[in-house]
């Protein structure tokens, strides 16, 4: 038996798995209730499927644009070849982003993410992610996750974040 195979800290893997699901479900909700994200999603092609994945064996999150014009969280595996893929080269790199030690832009700049597919669509998805994070995360965390924290008024932030959280709950209860 080969004893040289070292496993990643299981808590780190579980944390990334959990965060991917949180992001997937939050993006789904945000695409239903936030005007800015709805605008971005409207410009994506119908049924576009994208994933964020740690190579080679996950974790992953897969989303698709529905006929209703929203994003839907598909789960952790894609039923077909995805149109856009953002692939972390290692679990540690995903952990850095999801634990807000490194912004998505910094992760790209540090060559930790591979982008496959139409870049214009990927940029729209990144903007959706950024917008969602600016609304749902406390400012001091969002400032670490984003290149620049947007100019959001307190009511806009509280209302926007609240709408997303309650929509996530609705989706979980009623599907």
């Amino acid at each position: 038996m080969n004893n040289n195979k070292v496993k990643v800290n299981p808590w780190k893997r579980r944390y990334v798995v959990l965060m991917m699901e949180v992001i997937g479900r939050s993006m789904e909700a945000a695409s239903q209730v936030d005007r800015v994200i709805r605008g971005e999603v409207a410009n994506l092609p119908d049924r576009l499927m994208f994933e964020m994945r740690v190579i080679p064996n996950g974790p992953a999150l897969v989303m698709v644009k529905t006929d209703a014009g929203n994003l839907r969280y598909v789960g952790t595996s894609a039923p077909r070849k995805v149109d856009v893929a953002m692939k972390f080269k290692h679990l540690q790199h995903a952990f850095l982003v999801f634990s807000f030690q490194e912004s998505t832009a910094r992760s790209f700049a540090n060559d930790r993410i591979l982008l496959d597919g139409e870049i214009a669509y990927a940029m729209k998805i990144v903007r959706c992610l950024n917008r969602m994070e600016s609304l749902i995360l406390p400012k001091f965390i969002a400032q670490r996750a984003l290149k620049r924290y947007p100019d959001l008024s307190l009511p806009e932030k509280l209302l926007g974040g609240g709408r997303i959280y309650s929509q996530v709950a609705k989706n979980l209860i009623w599907g």
């Binding site: 832009a105 790209f108 700049a109 982008l115 870049i119 214009a120 990927a122 940029m123 729209k124 990144v126 903007r127 984003l146 290149k147 620049r148 947007p150």
Partner: peptide, 15 residues
């Protein structure tokens, strides 16, 4: 321009 991949590497965020 916002949809161009190079924008993510600009040192200052661009809206």
């Amino acid at each position: 321009a916002l949809d161009d991949g190079s924008i993510i590497f600009n040192p200052v965020d661009v809206e």
